[in-house]
Design a protein around this nucleic acid. Structure first.
Lengths: 339, 339
DNA sequence: TCAGCGTTTTGAATCGTTTCATAGCGTAGG
DNA sequence: CCTACGCTATGAAACGATTCAAAACGCTGA
């Protein structure tokens, strides 16, 4: 193995000099090989190999103006829901020869803005974003500057931005109806802050379903806000719920990771599931069915969600489109079991 | 909400014209505000705001030569192990004001090469890679062209490349010793292809531990190669194992996702765990302890792994460093239970 | 031999920044 | 009143590619 010391990167003119042609010809070999005679092409390719030449993307892009790259920003890359969505995006972009730059905002609008700026500065074709706040003006501004923008996992609050979403109200409502049908009349909801639209929507769907069932949400619903939308958050929230005077008989969680934390905490506290406390998750991630107490959860078409988002981003038709998928309640023993 | 039609992106000279200064001054406002008089600065900033000016990153980079971005390529972004590593990387880069471009190679060397090229063309400072094949010459070539390269999750096979890894032989050996101590004398190993170094190392560690215990690996070890290192792969592999004439009494899995598939398949086949078949996973992901049969698994310091990798990448010292972490066996009921 | 034509190659202009040598300007000191 | 100096601001060069009008080349047929 040879250990060459780093040297200056070869440029197209270095190649041209070595192959004794002009830079224009080298560029043609790279981009329109058919316009170059075979002999010249050979010579240029040899020089490229010799020098380990890799074209400078910045220069290319500066001149050509555009690249086949898209960006995506999700809330948390460690959450399987978002990685499944990301896979859907990647698969669709791959078909079109595009590449994806992925980043996670940590629900932090400042980080979101930083990554958006990075993407814009580097001239991506467009971005897919799970907004970390209710305000989408900055995204509309981005669109007006010529980038394609697709809102991920939330219906667009403005006409002009395309969006792909799952009906969160329907999902939460289905879960709530299921619990009410089982006789629960007091339900805890470990939810994220309402600044995240999905969280607000789910709270609303849950509330509406309770009203439909003739219950007073003020009585029947205890919403606990958790800041970390993961297992740790679920644990903290469940500890709060267990400390309540009039303890609910069921807990809905904003996602399956939080439900994992809830189950862990309930087990530690010796509360049986579901007889002591029914638990419902959200997302139906891969392991939901394999837990000690298999988890009732709301399944979302994650892969499709990402795939379709990328589809909209690539669509040459410039008009905004809005796609909504329907979620599906998957019932398991964390609500119907005998434990 | 106003809906401005996309117009041409403003450039620094548009700003200069509007503020009636030279382009150099605008650049100074952007990069060395203290060298510009407050009055001029104000005027320029107003023009920037007016025009929605966002500097062109390609042009900047072309001239300045470098950006504070690093790339990472993992095998599968849907695998919690890799996303935890990615979080570690992100956290360290964030401290240094760097941003991360993340991609997954799908264990496909061609995809890996494509992303490496993309990263290089865009002038990242360096890349962290979980190589998808045994050959690292292309990475050494990258390094010789001036990029910083850190191998992720595998010890470097060459001196010149920095690496961060967990001792895979030790992890597999610890798991094997545990199984042998429990009396198992025939062990199935659902492993990935040996072209992936971790897989080869784990097979070797397992084999060595069996020899140490006085067993003949030819007899005691049944290695089943699975192509998908996830739950589906685990399911397929387990089906093969169950069809064997002389059925092993324990199954080691290359990761927890595969173990999830194994547990699912065993349950479907009515094979009790661990009395009918003990199961060991690898990675100790968040849900491992919460499964129907809590999973014995090899814990790796994932977050640290990523954090340290980014650390090496940022280290101004150019010499190659090699960091190895030790894994830890976490024993649960999938091997010691009464099921 | 030369005009005419199609193919291949050339080289200068261009993209939007940063950088840096230099010019302009106001002020303090002699 | 002139010089020197410190601030600011200027504007051209440079980064490394693509693009395209024009030149060079190689043939064919008269």
């Amino acid at each position: 193995m040879t250990t060459t010391a780093p040297r200056r990167r070869a440029s197209i003119s270095d190649v041209a000099r070595l192959a004794t042609v002009s830079v224009g010809t080298v560029s043609n070999v790279l981009n329109r090989p058919d316009r170059v005679s075979p002999a010249t092409r050979e010579r240029v390719l040899a020089a490229i190999g010799e020098l380990d030449f890799v074209p400078n993307g910045s220069a290319r892009q500066l001149r050509a103006g555009t690249i086949t790259t898209a960006g995506a920003i999700v809330l948390d890359i460690a959450n399987p829901f978002f990685t499944d969505v990301a896979r859907g995006i990647e698969d669709r972009l791959d078909e079109a020869g595009y590449t994806l730059m992925l980043a996670s905002s940590d629900e932090n609008p400042e980080r979101e803005a930083r990554y958006l700026r990075l993407f814009e500065e580097h001239g991506v074709q467009g971005v897919m974003v799970v907004p970390s706040g209710p305000d989408v003006q900055h995204l509309e501004a981005l669109r007006s500057r010529g980038l394609r923008v697709v809102l991920l996992d939330r219906p667009s609050p403005v006409e002009t931005l395309s969006s792909v979403a799952v009906d969160d109200r329907a999902g939460a409502a289905a879960a709530a109806r299921h619990l009410v049908d089982l006789g629960h009349e007091r339900i805890a909801f470990l939810n994220g802050p309402h600044t995240i639209r999905q969280c607000a929507d789910r709270a609303e769907g849950l509330r509406a379903a309770l009203v439909d069932a003739g219950l007073d949400p003020g009585e029947a619903l205890v919403e606990v806000t958790i800041t970390a939308l993961n297992a740790d958050g679920g644990q903290a929230g469940t500890e709060q719920v267990l400390a309540l005077d009039d303890r609910p008989t069921a807990t809905m969680c904003v996602n399956d990771l939080a439900a994992l934390g809830a189950l862990r905490t309930l087990r530690a506290a010796g509360v049986p599931v579901p007889s002591g406390m029914a638990v419902v998750g959200y997302d139906d991630v891969a392991f939901a069915g394999e837990l000690a107490t298999p988890l009732t959860s709301v399944r979302q078409p994650t892969h499709q969600l990402g795939y379709r988002a990328a589809d909209l981003l690539l669509d040459p038709d410039d008009s905004a489109a809005h796609v909504t998928f329907q979620p599906e309640l998957v019932v398991r023993e964390s609500t119907t079991g005998t434990g």
